[in-house]
């Protein structure tokens, strides 16, 4: 791990992050944009799954996935850039660790929805409440992504590093 982190610190990405004083703030701003895009798309889907605004057919939320992916990719790229630039601080940071675990859980939750629930959602009432398991998946997703934002923002304030 140590060797890998040293490798990252010496990589061209790390020099890009520190070569110009504005790279880091610009990437942070893009990271915020990615966050709002991802959260907006995910939260809309989650709220509908939880039973809000039934005017929206549940199956129509499918079009939000592409928007969510745009936000996620933006943040994956900028996130990796931050990590390359400062891995020695991130790795031992408890808030960063919690954030990563929450992202993995949110990902698993999304995969469960995609592969277990979505194949059967043709039978759901478009303007009704989805089955309870889908409501739980929606609420979990909303809670997990909110947690990702919370612990992401707390990285500079929590724990060591």
């Amino acid at each position: 791990m140590e060797a890998f982190m040293t490798f990252l610190s010496n990589s061209w990405v790390a020099s890009l992050m520190y070569g110009w004083a504005w790279t880091w703030p610009i990437c942070e701003t893009i990271h915020f944009f990615g966050m709002t895009i991802l959260f907006g798309a995910i939260a809309t889907t989650d709220l509908r799954l939880m039973g809000f605004f039934k005017q929206m057919p549940i199956q129509a939320t499918h079009v939000l996935i592409n928007i969510a992916i745009v936000g996620f990719v933006l943040n994956l790229i900028t996130g990796i850039m931050f990590f390359c630039g400062d891995s020695f601080r991130y790795v031992p940071n408890i808030s960063f660790q919690i954030k990563m675990v929450l992202i993995l859980l949110a990902g698993a939750n999304a995969l469960y929805f995609t592969f277990k629930l979505q194949p059967t959602w043709g039978e759901w009432d478009p303007h009704g409440n989805p089955p309870q398991i889908a409501r739980i998946v929606g609420a979990s997703s909303l809670a997990l992504w909110t947690g990702v934002i919370i612990f992401g923002r707390l990285i500079p304030y929590l724990g060591t590093g």
């Binding site: 966050m35 709002t36 895009i37 959260f39 907006g40 798309a41 939000l64």
Partner: peptide, 10 residues
Amino acid sequence: LAIVVGLVFI
């Protein structure tokens, strides 16, 4: 921020 801007963007 994520709630208001995210939903307004959508």
